[in-house]
Design a protein around this nucleic acid. Structure first.
Lengths: 190, 190
DNA sequence: GTCTATAGCCGGATAGAC
DNA sequence: GTCTATCCGGCTATAGAC
C-alpha cells in the first residue's frame, strides 16, 4: 500500500470530476485529464483499469461529498423541515455553475442514460442517496407520502437546473429557489 | 434542384433525429446514420457540409413537428386553459421513450450545454418556441406573470423527465402528469 | 448525384524500459 | 511507481472515380 500513489489517484479523480461536470463523461478524454493534472496518460492505468473505473471513483467521490453536506444539514438543526430547506439551498449554492453546466448529478445521469446501462446505474447512485435522505426527512415529519414527496422535490430542482442552463438564466434560479422553499413549507405545514 | 436528393436528405435527418435522441449527438457517428439509412458515409457531405449542419436540420425538423402539435392544440379548442392541458399530455404521449432516453429537447440542450456554445444555442430554439407558445396561452387567460409561468411549466415537465429517466420509473411520469395538470388548473382558475 | 477510398486525427488501451 | 512509445480502431472530413 504505497501512500505515494494515492495522492495521484485522488488528483485524477478530482480533475475527472470537474471535467465530467463541465464537458461531460464521453467528451472528456484521458488527454484532458492528463493536461489538467500533469500526470501522463499511460500512468492512469496504474490506478484504474478502464475509463469506467474512473467514473465509478468520481461518483463515489461525489457521494462522499454529498454525505458531508447532508451531515452538515443534520448538525445544523434537528428540525427535518429546516433540513429540507437547507438542502434546497444547494440550488443557489453554485448558481453560476448550474447555469453554465447544469446539475452535476442530473446531467451525468441524463448523459449516461443514452450509453451503456451499467454506467447509467452507477450515476444513479448519487440520486438514490439524495432521495433516501429527503424521504427520511419527510417521514420524520409524519408525512405518509414521503416517497412521492422526495421524488417531487428532486424533480423540481432538476427542472429548474435544466431550464436555467438552457436559457442561461440566473434570475430564474433565484426565483425558483424561493418557490421550492415555499413548496417545502406548504407541504410540511404543522 | 433535383428532387431525387431531397428524399435522401430527409431520410438522413429522420435517422439522425432518432439517433441523436436515443444515443446523443456526440455519440452518434456518420457510420451510425449510414447504417440506419443505407446511405454511404461519404454521401452525407453532398447534403451537409458538417455534422453541425445535420444538427441544425434536425432541430429545424423538430421545431416543425412541434409547430404541428401546437397547431393541433389550437385547432382542438379555443380555450387557452384546455390548450395548456393538451400540451402537458406530451409528457404522457411517449412515456416509454421518456423513461428510456428523457426529453428529446431537454436532453439535447443539456448535452450541448457542455459543448460548443453555438450548438447549444441551436438546440435552445426548440425551447424558445415552446416557451413563447405557453406564454401566449397564459397571456390569453389574462395572467400578468405569463413569462414566469411558462418557464415554470417547462421546468416542471423537464424535472419529471429527468427523474423518471434516472429511475426508469413509468409510474412517476403518470402521477406527475396528473400533478402538472392540477397545477395548470390551479394557476388558471377563472 | 452516387459511391469508394483514404487522409489525418484522436480515442482508449497496452507493453515494457527505468 | 513513473513514464514513453505505440498499437489499433473509430472519428470527421476530403478527393476523386463513375
Amino acid at each position: 500500500m504505497g501512500t505515494k500513489g494515492e495522492g495521484n489517484r485522488q488528483r485524477i479523480i478530482d480533475a475527472a470530476d470537474d471535467l465530467f461536470y463541465r464537458r461531460g463523461y464521453n467528451q472528456t478524454s484521458f488527454q484532458d485529464i492528463s493536461d489538467a493534472t500533469g500526470i501522463p496518460r499511460g500512468n492512469f492505468y496504474y490506478y484504474f483499469k478502464t475509463k469506467d473505473e474512473i467514473l465509478n471513483a468520481v461518483v463515489n467521490s461525489r457521494i462522499a461529498g454529498l454525505n458531508t453536506i447532508l451531515n452538515q444539514c443534520e448538525l445544523e438543526t434537528d428540525d427535518a423541515r429546516e433540513r429540507l430547506l437547507l438542502f434546497s439551498d444547494m440550488l443557489d449554492f453554485r448558481r453560476d455553475d448550474v447555469v453554465q453546466s447544469g446539475c452535476p448529478i442530473g446531467s451525468l445521469s441524463s448523459e449516461l442514460a443514452k450509453d451503456d446501462t451499467e454506467l447509467h446505474e452507477v450515476s444513479r447512485q448519487a440520486f438514490v442517496l439524495l432521495r433516501d435522505w429527503i424521504r427520511l426527512q419527510f417521514e420524520t415529519l409524519g408525512l405518509g407520502n414521503a416517497d412521492d414527496l422526495a421524488m417531487d422535490l428532486l424533480a423540481r430542482m432538476q427542472g429548474v437546473t435544466v431550464m436555467a442552463c438552457a436559457f442561461k438564466d440566473v434570475e430564474f434560479v433565484k426565483r425558483s429557489h424561493q418557490e421550492v422553499k415555499d413548496w417545502i413549507k406548504a407541504k410540511t405545514l404543522n
